[in-house]
């Protein structure tokens, strides 16, 4: 049963609107602790990020947080099929786990999202009854349309290894016609495709009172061209703290990566939150 205040590590299910949600808890769930909900990225990026997320959970628990790693509907050990998943369902999952943690801990959890997980977090933060204590966005997906096109390119790439050759245009046409398309082993229903196409981070309205931090990762700060990934200007009053971190883009590398710069930054940003909270 999670959250569990008696043990340092637990795994169990929290009821979601569409089925049971598998959640791993790292760190004792003392109600006075800062809880942190980790929001994973999409499909293969999630697989590549798994080691990082576990490393982050361990690191945060070592500094006194209680961390929860969520499998969205249709992924990992949660209920449902990926073919029935949509970003809206996943946002509902985030809200369900958030509400459960908010009821258990003295204050709402902080959220740390990676890529699409960060985007889902930004889009959901203002829709939960009590907003998250902080929102750390690690290289969020800003345009679902571009993100989807990149993902659908896997249909072209798989042809290089002897698979069937289908580009983004072919796959989108089949999806529009109502077919579920399979890309890199993932079944994408028409509802998933259309929702990803419509996803626009600029439409998110993060709550102004939530500490909001935006990370962009570059391999070599000195050598790389000027940064291009910026928070939407529409966020206005909710403009985040921006950090440029030197790190491998761990979500796109099959060899597991746990970049220390990112772990350090998340710890520092959440520690700052904890200090300000304790001071109230």
């Amino acid at each position: 049963m999670v959250p569990d205040a008696e043990v340092d590590f637990a795994a169990g299910y929290i009821g979601g609107a569409n089925g049971p949600l598998f959640v791993v808890q790292v760190g004792r769930a003392d109600p006075g602790r800062l809880s942190v909900l980790l929001l994973p990225p999409f499909a293969e990026e999630m697989n590549c990020s798994r080691r990082f997320l576990v490393g982050l959970a361990r690191r945060l628990s070592a500094v006194g947080c209680c961390v929860f790693l969520l499998d969205y509907y249709g992924t990992g050990d949660s209920g449902g099929r990926f073919a029935d998943a949509t970003p809206d369902r996943w946002r509902g999952d985030v809200a369900a786990v958030h509400d459960r943690l908010t009821a258990h801990f003295d204050r709402p959890p902080a959220w740390v999202g990676v890529r699409l997980g960060a985007s889902l977090g930004a889009l959901s933060a203002s829709t939960v009854a009590r907003p998250p204590s902080a929102l750390v966005l690690i290289q969020p997906v800003t345009s679902g349309r571009s993100f989807l096109t990149q993902f659908l390119r896997l249909g072209l790439v798989s042809a290089l290894a002897g698979g069937r050759r289908e580009g983004p245009k072919d796959l989108l046409a089949r999806s529009v016609a109502g077919e579920t398309v399979r890309v890199a082993g993932y079944d994408l229903a028409p509802a998933m495709v259309s929702a990803l196409q419509a996803l626009d981070l600029a439409t998110a309205m993060p709550p102004p009172a939530t500490r909001l931090v935006w990370y962009e990762l570059v391999r070599d700060i000195a050598a790389d061209p000027p940064r291009r990934l910026r928070p939407p200007s529409a966020w206005g009053a909710a403009a985040p703290i921006e950090r440029l971190l030197e790190s491998e883009p761990f979500w796109s590398i099959q060899e597991p990566q746990v970049p220390a710069t990112v772990l350090d930054a998340v710890c520092e940003d959440l520690a700052a939150l904890d200090r300000s909270w304790v001071g109230r």
């Binding site: 293969e44 390119r153 790439v157 798989s158 290089l160 698979g163 590398i253 099959q254």
Partner: peptide, 26 residues
């Protein structure tokens, strides 16, 4: 593998500020 190709393609596009057409991925 497939994901690696995609990563290389995206990195090349970002680095050189170019865009590959579908036909280029052959």
């Amino acid at each position: 593998d497939s994901m690696a190709v995609l990563t290389v393609v995206t990195s090349l596009e970002d680095h050189f500020d170019i865009v590959f057409d579908d036909e280029d991925i052959s």
